[in-house]
Amino acid sequence: MSSPITESAGSSGAGGDGTTTTADDYGAHYYRHHLGPPYEPGHPHWTAFFDAVAERIVTTFRPATVLDAGCAKGILVGSLVGLGVDASGVDVSDYAIADGDPRAAGRLRVGSLVEPIEGRFDLITCIEVIEHMAQADAELALDNICAATDVLLLSTTPFDLNDTTHVNVRMPAHWASMLADRGFYRRFDLDLSWLTPWAAAYQRQPLSVREIVHGYEDRMPWLQIEVNEKRAHALGLSHELGEQEQQAEQLRHELLRQRDLVLGLQAEAARAQWEAEDATDRLEQAEQLLTRSRARARELENRLRTLSSSRALRVGQAVLRPAVTLRRKLR
Rank of each mutant, 00 (worst) to 15 (best):
M1R: 07
S2P: 02
S3C: 08
S3Q: 12
T6W: 00
S8F: 09
S11A: 15
S12F: 00
A14D: 05
G16N: 10
D17L: 04
G18A: 04
T19E: 05
T20H: 12
T21N: 09
T22D: 08
T22K: 02
D24I: 00
A28F: 09
R32D: 14
H33P: 00
H34F: 11
L35S: 05
P37Q: 06
P37H: 14
P41I: 01
G42Q: 07
T47R: 11
F50C: 02
D51Y: 06
I57E: 10
V58P: 00
V58G: 05
T59M: 10
F61W: 05
T65Q: 05
C71G: 04
L76K: 09
L80V: 03
V81C: 06
G84K: 10
V85A: 06
V85Q: 05
D86E: 13
S88Q: 09
V90D: 01
D91A: 04
Y95L: 10
A96M: 07
D99G: 08
G100A: 09
A104N: 05
A105M: 05
G106S: 08
R107Q: 03
L108F: 09
G111H: 09
V114T: 07
P116C: 11
R120W: 01
D122H: 10
L123I: 08
L123W: 00
D143I: 02
T149F: 07
D150E: 14
V151I: 14
L154F: 06
L154D: 03
T156R: 00
F159C: 11
D160E: 13
N162V: 07
N162L: 10
D163C: 13
V167K: 05
N168L: 07
V169D: 12
V169Y: 07
M171L: 14
W175G: 02
W175M: 11
A176I: 06
R182A: 11
F184L: 10
Y185I: 07
D189H: 13
L190P: 10
T196C: 02
P197F: 01
A200H: 06
L207I: 14
S208R: 08
V209W: 11
R210S: 13
D218F: 02
M220G: 01
M220L: 15
I225M: 07
I225P: 01
V227K: 03
V227W: 13
N228W: 07
A234F: 13
G236T: 11
L237T: 00
E240C: 03
L241V: 03
Q244E: 12
Q244V: 04
E245W: 09
Q246L: 14
Q247K: 00
Q247A: 14
A248N: 11
L256Y: 12
L256W: 14
R259P: 01
D260H: 15
L261C: 08
L263D: 12
L263T: 14
G264Q: 14
A269F: 13
A270V: 04
R271A: 15
Q273W: 13
W274Y: 10
E277W: 02
D278I: 00
A279L: 15
L283Q: 11
E284M: 08
A286R: 08
A286K: 04
Q288S: 09
T291F: 02
R294M: 11
A295H: 06
A295W: 02
R296I: 03
R298P: 03
E301F: 04
N302Q: 13
S308W: 12
S308D: 01
S308F: 13
S309C: 03
S310N: 10
A312H: 08
Q317L: 12
Q317D: 06
Q317P: 02
A318V: 08
V319W: 01
R321W: 03
A323C: 07
T325S: 03
L330P: 00
R331L: 09
